[in-house]
Design a binder for these strands. Sequence first.
DNA 1: CATGAATGAGTGTTCATTCAT
DNA 2: CATGAATGAACACTCATTCAT
Lengths: 233, 233, 233, 233
Amino acid sequence: MPTSTIAHTAASDGQVRRSRRKEARPGELLDAALDLFVEKGFAATRVEEVAQRAGVSKGTLFLYFPSKEDLFKAVVRENISGRFAEWNEEFDRFKGSTQEMLRYCLFSWWERIGSTKASGIPKLMMSEAQNFPELTEFYQHEVIQPGTSLIERLLRRGVTSGEFRPMDLKYGVVLVMAPMLFLAMWRHSLGSCCASHLELDPKQYLNAQLDMLLHGFSAQNSPITALQENQFQ
Amino acid sequence: MPTSTIAHTAASDGQVRRSRRKEARPGELLDAALDLFVEKGFAATRVEEVAQRAGVSKGTLFLYFPSKEDLFKAVVRENISGRFAEWNEEFDRFKGSTQEMLRYCLFSWWERIGSTKASGIPKLMMSEAQNFPELTEFYQHEVIQPGTSLIERLLRRGVTSGEFRPMDLKYGVVLVMAPMLFLAMWRHSLGSCCASHLELDPKQYLNAQLDMLLHGFSAQNSPITALQENQFQ
Amino acid sequence: MPTSTIAHTAASDGQVRRSRRKEARPGELLDAALDLFVEKGFAATRVEEVAQRAGVSKGTLFLYFPSKEDLFKAVVRENISGRFAEWNEEFDRFKGSTQEMLRYCLFSWWERIGSTKASGIPKLMMSEAQNFPELTEFYQHEVIQPGTSLIERLLRRGVTSGEFRPMDLKYGVVLVMAPMLFLAMWRHSLGSCCASHLELDPKQYLNAQLDMLLHGFSAQNSPITALQENQFQ
Amino acid sequence: MPTSTIAHTAASDGQVRRSRRKEARPGELLDAALDLFVEKGFAATRVEEVAQRAGVSKGTLFLYFPSKEDLFKAVVRENISGRFAEWNEEFDRFKGSTQEMLRYCLFSWWERIGSTKASGIPKLMMSEAQNFPELTEFYQHEVIQPGTSLIERLLRRGVTSGEFRPMDLKYGVVLVMAPMLFLAMWRHSLGSCCASHLELDPKQYLNAQLDMLLHGFSAQNSPITALQENQFQ
DNA sequence: CATGAATGAGTGTTCATTCAT
DNA sequence: CATGAATGAACACTCATTCAT
């Protein structure tokens, strides 16, 4: 009951703090919207429910976001696009090897997006892309392109330094991105539904991915890896 | 179980003529529904459009499937035919190296599933898993488990023969499956929407995956690969 | 209560004639829509009320008319545009003097439009033209242009035959149209609200207009006219 | 009577300073509202836009006018200032022929009303008469009746002097009024919407009307007129 | 006195579902 | 069996009105 703030008159300091009207902050709306979009998808989420969950009226929502699509865009910006600036800066300052950088990339993605509610957004986009072309274009520009640029940059660094083999960067980028996206989608769909024998421990999954990105399955490659044991957490 | 209501009428005259006629319509409806569900998702698909595409009236559709949800369930069930028996047999007879077997696995999947309409089913399941838990469980048993067993078997063969490093098979399996599922979903969603810089050539993508599964990015691994050139088609 | 036709089972001839569902005919919807559009204007008329008055559900209305604007267009076509073909034919066959033709023009307009509910449409268009540009364009093409063509033709005939003075046809047309439009608007607004000292008898008003169109106020013109006495009905 | 609540506070200090400040705002609001009501109609005008255009907040508007309807009433009342006294005096002093007087009547109406913002009021009244019966009655008394009296007086003068034929004054008055009202409405609705073949030059239109009021279309009447050429500006 | 954030009833349109024929 | 006309609940978005500050 977010409306519990109603009529909470602060008698002590002489000031009336809260009244019948809920003071809306866009933040609460964005949180509520993220929850519902991830849970139900874009189309199936009713704006009224978003408003209710944020403890305000439908009208108030439209006061802050001119349309449902704009609300969604704001959610994406708040939870995903906004992160790329910081990431790029971190990459600028990164001192270690590119292998370490790749590891950092996967694990910071996990901490900032993968393990949060925001990880539901990629799944959502996959599901609804066809039906909302404008949102899709937005997502392309705000998420896909910055994300691929970031990874491309990383791979280029590795190739330049001689750590990585020369490669077609386009497919290299997808090789790095796909497992992250897959993990996000898996957790929000099949992985979450059934106590499956395939319930993945995310960090172990990412370690396995990382290990394979670097060394592959082949036996002649370096032998001690996440694929063998759960030694990395 | 809407499909069970269909085919159990023609017991009297021994001929399946009447029942065959009846079964013709649900089949067309299921085909039409698969196309549309994959293209637009469950919610955005209108039953009337399904009926039109199948050449029948909306009323007729509801004659065969008591609700849109039942239609959806029937679509998913119908398209999960057990291809796994055949695959297992092929694996029994396979003579080459496990590396070749892995390659065969990815490419036969592409030919039989990935490049066909059936590739829409994983996307559907990912998108709608939350809304159809009963269906999800069914999918787990009928597809995910047989599929993982198949790949697990393959990996075990590789480890036993010394071609592959020892590994935690659970994560190994996901490493193999993820790119296939990702490819299927990508093609049916974001990948098809935007004239993206990320439009993937499926065979090249699979080659790149295969290459990385075997060798990873590292420079000390075998240098000439699909990642470098487009020599594989 | 148009829904009184419900469950009116015709027991006599063995046939069930009417059932719970109302059989909608677009005609009833058009009638209801004309009533309400004229009474309340386009924007203020709720489609649900139109449907109710026609005795059907809101959904049924959208079965016949894809949008409120289309409903309006159909109303205009049914009640106004459709008349011009007949009018043109009558003008083709007209044998008398152009003065008689002008009289015929005004009075047949009165019988077919001015005295009917359709006379509310011009007022409505005047009120709402600015807010519904698409409707306005439609009205231009379907009503204003055919109407002006008809009158222009009439005036040209009179000038050619020497009955009328040479004139700038554009303003001649407006001189003829304006009083008809004014009468229609007056009746649906100020004229209908108050038992005014200006309550106009339409036929007398039209006679006065006709007389003035032909002769003006001047004393040197033909003396016996509608302006003097109420001899015409 | 919302305007009565405004100006009766400043009795104490004799100076109208404070009250003058207060009155400034309603004036701006009424101006803004007139513009918008005329342009868009009552329903389509948003109070927020009125407030913005007047440079105040929405809340302030409701401080002065308890509702949108009250604002509308105030707008109409405000803009019906008694110009009729002046007009009557001018008629008292008029020396020329009644034909000249009629011409003066039309053109001074154009200068004082027709060409100004005030010409929007008749359109408003025509559009909204049904919804504001109380206002309509007010308009009858304050505008229609004085106006008709003025014209009636003019026509009577012409008949008495022998310039005009004897006539039923009631219809004579409408014959004179109708084209003025029509012009005002046309300019504010259809005439302004469409780059129509019927875009009217007001002075030419009034000349044509005047000419026809005096002579009609008939060929035996005086031949050189505004209907023939555009020689009058 | 002035503000503007908050409200919530109201509207056009869609679409799964029903049912008389 | 098959049809398709009819239904009505649902939903995004608007805007006059309120009221705490």
